[in-house]
Design a protein around this nucleic acid. Sequence first.
DNA 1: TTGAAAGCGCTACCAA
DNA 2: TTGGTAGCGCTTTCAA
Lengths: 329, 329
Amino acid sequence: MAVTIKDVARAAGVSPSTVSRALSTPQLLLPETRERVQRAVQELGYHPNRAARGLITGRTGNIGLIVPDLTNPFFPGVVKGVQERAHESEFSVFLADTDEHAAAEADLVRALGKQVDGIILCSPRMSEAEVRAVAGETPVVMLNRRVGRIPSVTVDLGETIRQAVAHLVALGHRRIGYVAGPRNSWSNRERLRALRAAAAAAGVELEEIATVAPKFAGGVAVADVVLAAGVTAVVAYNDLVALGLLNRFAARGVAVPADISVVGFDDILFAEMVSPALTTLALPQEPTGRAGVELLLDLLEDPDRAGNARRELSAQLMVRGSTGPARPE
Amino acid sequence: MAVTIKDVARAAGVSPSTVSRALSTPQLLLPETRERVQRAVQELGYHPNRAARGLITGRTGNIGLIVPDLTNPFFPGVVKGVQERAHESEFSVFLADTDEHAAAEADLVRALGKQVDGIILCSPRMSEAEVRAVAGETPVVMLNRRVGRIPSVTVDLGETIRQAVAHLVALGHRRIGYVAGPRNSWSNRERLRALRAAAAAAGVELEEIATVAPKFAGGVAVADVVLAAGVTAVVAYNDLVALGLLNRFAARGVAVPADISVVGFDDILFAEMVSPALTTLALPQEPTGRAGVELLLDLLEDPDRAGNARRELSAQLMVRGSTGPARPE
DNA sequence: TTGAAAGCGCTACCAA
DNA sequence: TTGGTAGCGCTTTCAA
């Protein structure tokens, strides 16, 4: 059996209450008592049972993290950030991967709800109504999405998307394609909106080519459609899709960037690893995760003040080999 | 406040004990009572507090999963498998990433120990003594490592490594290099041992070139040393390192496989995405995770019988573009 | 078949 | 400054 607070109390010759205080409010004890308890804690290797503590304090010291797909390297980056920051504040992290099933998200929130103090929803796919519903039940922070007054961490892509479009226009591109991600992805909608605005402002055409699963295979699948669309540059919903495009283009003997330029979003590690390396709009992955934890901690501490808290991080255009001068018509 | 067992009891006009029974041993109740309780559960949206339950039953319904580095795509695959299988048995998963710090592993096990029924250690880097120590305190299953009688899931690479060496030898390679992973990695030692044996049996040289961090940057860093070693083929500790090699080779204008052949381990998604695609020894990622959970569940159910349980999965050689005929001397 | 009571490990209150 | 007591939400005897 594990060592309990009673064992420590007995060993130190004090009451359980005193042991408890020695751990939570040591300044209230006589230095001598405190040391005696601490020695006993050390010797017995006592770790308080957090479940029992949580039963009383209403705090579990756990946070839940729900991501759509761990297989997309973007999310492990975020998860790492969450973990790191959580551990710094002595929180443990429950992780759940929904495999891109929007329906699984709400279920998971409810299943996790009881065992955590709050939940971080990373790029949730569920409807706004569902988001509001779960946020009403459990403290929730969202990453890469905004719904009403729910605290969220987002990345401001407006300026960076303008830069990216300017970059393509400067290279002579006049018809730019966009391969869209999931319809229920807020990021997808925002990216499309900003791209449209930037293209309009620059006086170039933006063609929404298709909607694909946000995976490598999605890019591969849509590549030939992209070629048939007659654009000279294509922006993909994320790097994984962009890499899928590059892969299929290579297989078809289409030269990048000579025949077509390709741009992604995220800047996953592998964007740099392919050749030509992928031009992409880099999202801060670990910082997003860290910021999410911070917002959640604020929210737990002061639900009123922290409601509607927003953290907006910035993106960066990484110009690499996959973009180049437009092929003359 | 969340709805408790008392609320349900009141709503259903029964005692809390009866509600508890309705959930755990419904067959002991009168059908009518059972239904009344179940209706109340539904209406109030009652979910038992697992922490409170765990306090009594000694079971938390949680398992801990510790991985070295989520940024290596191999691990998310395993994590996904663990998650899936765990959820199937109504277990939740605590995830912790040690960032390749062996020292963090034991600490994490201890920190998590109290809140979980058992822990899955994925490719742990800690010493055998430490492994034994933590396994003595908490039910532990290991993935990709064997220590004593601790239940483990491993992948049998012997035959596949022989195949890989035969493949290279058939292509005319006589001097093969190995870029080693972390010294404290069991997988690394096993791979090296099997490679040595296979090379000796085939009558070719195996040269251990260097030890690197099991990351992309590690491969990049060692690439020039590999070239200077004068081997015609190189096997890397894992795909990430192999991809680093490919990247630096490309930058140096070294043609793969014309000038040098490259082989990795794992078969991460990106092994297929680069060109030339990476020849690699594919490890089953999700199955490894799933098997780990199953072993752990067995262990929890019957600690005696399940001690020393082993599950050995098999690997597969994926021959792709990065291996080809040896460059004539 | 059901309910009352005890207690899991801990913290928070009130007294002393 | 410390200890006793109650009780968090639940399960599990033991009685009825």
